[in-house]
């Protein structure tokens, strides 16, 4: 009976595993994201270090690097399915929410990898002092999940368009403003060492944003996925 309890997860796990296998063999998204992130980080660190940046500047800079790096890679999971024409085989075989949850998890892992690479480098290169490390990690995870939840749905919308790159950014930015503002404020507070209690409203905004976006994704994805 225990295996039946997780039967709903078998499909998304299959989609995730397929994307991980494909990514491992092609480095299609990882290369784009990591190269962009490290390059941006290097440029930012040269400029900002000279300005002796404080938390009010370090926080938005970190999220700008994460945001633009994510924008360069998170759309690819759907775009590649359309470009290589594999999307039809997927549409014919899998429940739409199976695809959505598998892709969402893949993007979450991709952004998690990006966080693991960029954030330690950022802390070292920018000589950042984190006043409340646990809060910093919590804001980072919640903000990243917010980014992923919104951009995965937008990626599915733009995948069939001819000017995907521009459209992805144009559609994503307005949706991502709440999560970016909250993540920047929360990160700044964590860098200053503000206690948890004062930042919990910001953390709640990030969590609620993710919940709303994932719920909207599960509800809307079927209409986005199939041809109008």
């Amino acid at each position: 009976m225990a295996t039946r309890s997780f039967a709903w997860a078998e499909g998304p796990a299959a989609v995730l595993w397929k994307d991980l296998q494909a990514e491992y063999r092609t480095r299609y998204a990882v290369n784009a994201v990591v190269v962009f992130a490290v390059t941006t980080l290097a440029v930012v660190s040269f400029c900002a270090q000279a300005a002796a940046a404080g938390p009010e500047l370090l926080s938005p800079l970190l999220w700008l690097i994460l945001l633009f790096s994510a924008m360069s890679g998170l759309s690819r999971t759907f775009v590649r399915e359309e470009e290589t024409k594999t999307a039809n085989a997927l549409r014919l075989s899998a429940d739409p929410n199976t695809v959505y949850l598998g892709k969402l998890t893949f993007n979450a892992l991709l952004l998690g990898l990006l966080d693991l690479i960029v954030v330690p480098l950022y802390i070292v290169m920018m000589d950042v002092r984190v006043g409340n490390p646990a809060l910093f990690v919590a804001i980072l995870i919640a903000g990243s999940l917010g980014l992923v939840s919104a951009s995965t749905l937008v990626a599915a919308i733009v995948a069939k368009a001819s000017v995907r790159g521009a459209l992805f950014s144009v559609l994503s930015f307005p949706i991502l403003i709440p999560v970016l503002v909250a993540a920047v404020q929360g990160t700044e507070a964590a860098l200053r060492g503000v206690p948890w209690a004062q930042v919990s409203p910001t953390l709640k905004v990030l969590v609620m944003f993710t919940v709303v976006m994932v719920t909207a994704g599960l509800w809307l994805f079927e209409h986005v996925w199939y041809e109008a």
Partner: peptide, 12 residues
């Protein structure tokens, strides 16, 4: 379905 615009995964 077997169709020209239905493609399987090259990287698998």
């Amino acid at each position: 379905l077997v169709a020209p615009d239905l493609v399987l995964y090259d990287e698998l």
